[in-house]
Design a protein around this nucleic acid. Sequence first.
RNA 1: GGUACCUUGCCCGAGUGGUUAGGGACCGGUCUGCAAAACCGGGGACAGCGGUUCGAAUCUGCUAGGUACCUCCA
Length: 488
Amino acid sequence: MLQIYNTLTRQKEYFRPLHEGRVGMYVCGPTVYGDAHLGHARPAITFDLLFRYLQYLGYKVRYVRNITDVGHLEHDADEGEDKIAKKARLEQLEPMEVAQYYANRYHHDMEALNVLPPSIEPHASGHIMEQIEFVQKILDKGYAYISNGSVYMDVEKYAQDFHYGKLSGRNLNDIQTDTRELDGQDEKKHSYDFALWKKASPEHIMRWHSPWSDGFPGWHMECSAMGCKYLGEEFDIHGGGMDLIFPHHEAEIAQSCAALGHDTVRYWMHNNMITIAGKKMGKSYGNFITLQQFFKGEHQLLSKAFSPMTIRFFILMAHYRSTVDFSSEALEAAEKGLARMQEAYTRLMSLKAADKTTIELTNLKELCIEAMDDDLNSPIVISHLFDSARAINTIYDGKATISSEDLTALQTTWKTFVTDILGLRMEDTAGADNGKISAYKGAVDMLLTMRQQAKQEKDWAKSDYIRNQLTALGFSIKDKKDGFEWSL
RNA sequence: GGUACCUUGCCCGAGUGGUUAGGGACCGGUCUGCAAAACCGGGGACAGCGGUUCGAAUCUGCUAGGUACCUCCA
C-alpha cells in the first residue's frame, strides 16, 4: 500500500484518498516570466512520477498544475511591480504576450522531459473573479482587513482560532522578530500579515477591478482559489518545492482555513532542491542553467549536451526528498547508466523464448511496487531494474534461457515500470520511421555486411577501416557471434 | 538569531538495528583477429567523540562541517 511523506506530520503515512478510487492533486506550477531551468524540472518530474504511479494503481486522478501569469510581487528597487509586468515593459510586449511565450516554451521543455500534461492547467489571470470571491469570503469571516485599497490577512486574528505555522513549524513570535522592509509595510497591522489583494500603483500595467481597488491578487491567492475551484474544498495531495513551504503554502493553509473554516489539503508533499556544484541554484545567484542549455550543452559548467532523458533519469536516480547535486561528472555517469538500461530494454524486447527458464529471476514486479509504495523510491526501482538487466544480458548472450511465460511477464514489467511509471522513453531516437530512415539504416547494414565478409576473408585492414570510419561518424559497432549490432 | 534538514567507499546515490543496494570509474578474468559490448570476480564506506544494546551506518547526546527556509525563487 502506498505510503507518502506528509510534510504536515513529518512522517510517512498510508495514502487513503478522500473518495474511493479517485485522487485530486494540486501542484504549484511555473511563474512564466523566464525559461524553465533545472529547478522546474525537479517538481515537474517528481509529481509526474506520482501522477503516473497513482494511475498505475488504478486511481482516476485529477491533476491540477497552475500557470502563474499574474506574477508575484517582485521585491527589489521596482517597488511592487510584478514580474510579468516588469519583463513586459523591458521587452515592450503585452504582459500576456510574455506569459504566453514562456508558457509555450515551458510546455515544450516538459514535453522533452516526457512530463505528462496535467489534467487541468489553470492560469491565475483567468481566475481573477474566483480570487476576488475568495478574498471576500475571508473578509466576511473577519480574518482580513482593508487598508488603503489593499486587503491583508489578519494573521494574529487567524492565529487565535487556527494554528498558524503548523506546516513550517514556525510560531508567530519567531516570525515577528524577523521584521524586514517591504513595500506596503506601513499599511499592515503586523509585519507578518500578507496581502490578499494589492492595490496597483499608477505605473503598474497588470491590473483588475475589484471591490477594493484596481489591483491584483496577492501572492498566495491563486492556489487557494483554483485548487478549491477544481478539486473542491477538501482534496488529497498538494505538492511543490520545499522552498514554498514558507511562506507560500503556510499562507495557503491560512487562507483556506479562514475562508472555509477547515483544512483543504490532506497530504502535503515537497520535493527537495537542486544544487549546482554544491551551491544552491537561484536566480539571484546567477548559477542557474536552463533546460535548453542542458539539451544543447551551452553552459560553462557543462562538458557537453545532455539529453532530456538523461536529465530525467538523473533526477529519478535520487529520491525526491533528497537534495541532488548537478555536475557534468554525475550526469555523464547517469548517461551511461541510462544507455545500459536502454540496451537491456531493447534486448529484452527482442529475446526469444525457450522451453524453460534456466536463470533465477527475482520477482521484479513486486520489488518495484514495494519500492514505489515506499514514498516513491525511484532509486530503488532503478536498482532492481539494473539487477534484472544483468539477467537479461546473460540470456541475450545465450548463457541461459527463459520460458515464454517468464519472458512475457518480464517484458510487461519492464514496459510498465520503465516506460509507463518512470516515464523513460526507450524507443529508438528514430521514432517515426519513414522511407529516409530505413534507407539510411539499410546503407549502414550494407557497410557492416561488407565488413563481415572482409572479416571472413581475414582482411583486417578493410574490416577495421569500415569500423573506424563508422565509429568516427558517431556509430557504435558491436560484433556478435554471427553478425553485428550498431547504434548511433 | 529562529526553524527544518543533511554529512555513506574515487564520484553519484539507496538503506531495514544483525545479512551484497544500484550506477559510474578503476583492477583482474572470460569472449574476440583486435576492439566494443556483455558476463564473472575484486577492492574499498558509513564526519568525529561518547551513550543505549548481545549487536548500530541505522536509536540517543555532544562536537565539527554543510544546506535550505525565514526575502523573488522549484
